[in-house]
Write a protein that binds this DNA or RNA. Structure first.
Lengths: 330, 330
DNA sequence: TTGAAAGCGCTAACAA
DNA sequence: TTGTTAGCGCTTTCAA
């Protein structure tokens, strides 16, 4: 009834346990025919390596942690999936920790993970960087979508795509555009704002910076009110969720999108294509981000120097129905 | 530099390692003052139990697996969160396995998890039950939102709420209602259909069963076409995602909701409140489901007989803007 | 190319 | 109430 161990396999094969162990972890060290036999017997006995034993023996548990602040943020599921796939390919499993937006719990959570994971991927946009930096003292870490001094990170650079979005809006005739800022603590929010401001400065478009607003649907509803007050014809929302809130509020007030206002989101979460009109937005290269993050951790774990300290991946503009030509500039 | 072990703690305290071990895992067996001292020293040495060692020694790794078929399904994040919280409270961490809708990979995935988890929560609505049943041979399992012979399960019973929704529709004047069925392989889809059909039979409402449709946004778009063809004034969608597709397609065709048609969803995912109009839907008691599932697994792991083989939790009707009075019954 | 043996950190009889 | 002593299953020197 109990699970087979290398000892049973060894016995059946008439070799020592060490040989069986090598057959799996250092195949080049064992005689080819012996190896084949071992593999076959193992298969037949349904042998499965015991991770705990392995972990205890060599100090690595082949598990990665992924810390997310709020898994209900629609950006996260995609991220989770891509990390999990990448982890899987490199032989890690992934434990997910939902920190639930409460940065207070994060230190505790991280503490309890120590020894259970080989590395940690931090996707916490707003946790104080001191917390994250401390975590890195205990276990190899990589940060996603945020740059923290001393820590390797993988970030999505949306500036080019945001500029493209701006050019699109200009081409559609928009001259007064609002920038709905996300939370001040969010690195991504600051970066996106910078990119848009830079673009506006360069092109001379009248940019009205509004906010900060909460990065949520409700935040978007509030933002919509400001948009209407500010006499702009288009607005960049910090992210798609906020944009969805803006659309909902505008719809409720009878303001048409894209007829009366154009809205641009960011992230291209599933939601973006499920609302009406579909959201013009910046797609984040989620798969690549996940892969890159896992790769960095894997390098760190194995003592290899990661390729680069900061990996930048570009977002790309996705045009849907929420942007259109200016009709009556009010 | 290395992590402190019970031995260091023991040495500092002048006791044996066994005592330190007991101080943590069986506190009642150790002298109170000694215990306090041990705790203090451990804290000071930053001692953290090594899970691998623990797992190796007592055969339990304090980790639960949660298998989801598709984490981008908006129902899942809530489920994941609730399971993770419940797990956390009982001292488990949670490894998430995204099976990516491909039932083919599930057996392999499950195999690779053996020995790494103490129990497995299966949230796979459509995987063949043989696969799941097989998994249960290797590790304690509990199934969510689905009933499989021999396996304990936690399900959301929506029948009462679906009936309430029906009564609401009737009260609003709807007499011809469509039931947009979900995938035939989905237990939940079959159950929901049954509940609605039973209600219709009892109340004599003309129920038009359409589908099956894919449980997706696109599926909803298709369904919308059928809805328009079938001369009904209201429709039950299999779930919120499908409902969102229906709304989008109707909007695109200039059909007003709730003015021209009323739509009812199911699950109350975040999306339901983010689209316009908000979706009238059946809220699943996600938190309770997660807790119940974890509890069952915990019982199983500890050799306790779970309270009940099938735990039923009730959904509840949430009324939003997608349902309204019949205006011109076409 | 293989085997013997020690040890990873912790738990759990068993004795004391 | 505490300590001693075996392991748990695997990796990894070190010798052969």
């Amino acid at each position: 009834m109990k699970r087979a161990t290398i000892y049973q396999v060894a016995q059946v094969c008439g070799v020592s346990a060490a040989t069986v162990s090598r057959a799996f972890s250092r195949p080049e060290l064992v005689n080819e025919s012996a190896r084949q036999r071992i593999i076959a017997v193992a298969e037949q006995l349904q042998y499965r390596p015991n991770r705990a034993a392995k972990g205890l023996a060599n100090g690595r548990v082949s598990t990665l942690g992924l810390l997310v602040p709020d898994i209900t943020n629609p950006f996260m599921p995609l991220m989770v999936r891509s990390v999990q796939q990448a982890a899987d390919r490199l032989g890690y499993s992934m434990v997910l920790i939902d920190a639930e937006s409460g940065s207070a719990v994060e230190p505790t959570l991280i503490g309890s993970l120590i020894g259970q994971i080989d590395g940690l991927i931090l996707a916490s946009p707003r946790a104080p960087s001191s917390v994250l930096r401390r975590a890195a003292g205990d276990v190899p870490c990589v940060v996603i979508n945020r740059v923290i001094r001393e820590l390797p990170s993988v970030v999505c650079d949306n500036s080019t795509a945001l500029e493209e979005a701006g050019d699109l809006l200009t081409k559609l005739g928009h001259r007064r555009i609002a920038l709905l800022r996300g939370p001040t603590e969010s690195w991504a929010a600051r970066r996106r704002a910078q990119a848009v401001e830079k673009w506006a400065g360069r092109t001379g478009v009248a940019l009205k910076t509004l906010g900060p607003f909460d990065a949520s649907f409700e935040g978007g509803r509030h933002a919509a009110a400001s948009v209407l007050r500010s006499r702009v014809t288009a607005a960049y929302a910090f992210d798609d969720v906020m944009a969805a809130g803006v659309l909902a509020e505008l719809a409720e007030r009878g303001v048409g999108v894209p007829d009366d206002r154009s809205i641009v989101g960011c992230d291209d979460v599933l939601l973006a294509s499920m609302i009406t009109p579909g959201l013009t937005t910046i797609a984040a290269p989620v798969t690549e981000i996940g892969q890159a993050a896992v790769k960095v951790i894997d390098d760190l774990v194995r003592g290899v120097e990661p390729k680069s300290h900061i990996t930048r991946l570009n977002g790309s503009l996705i045009v849907r129905g929420s942007t259109g030509p200016v009709r009556s500039p009010r």
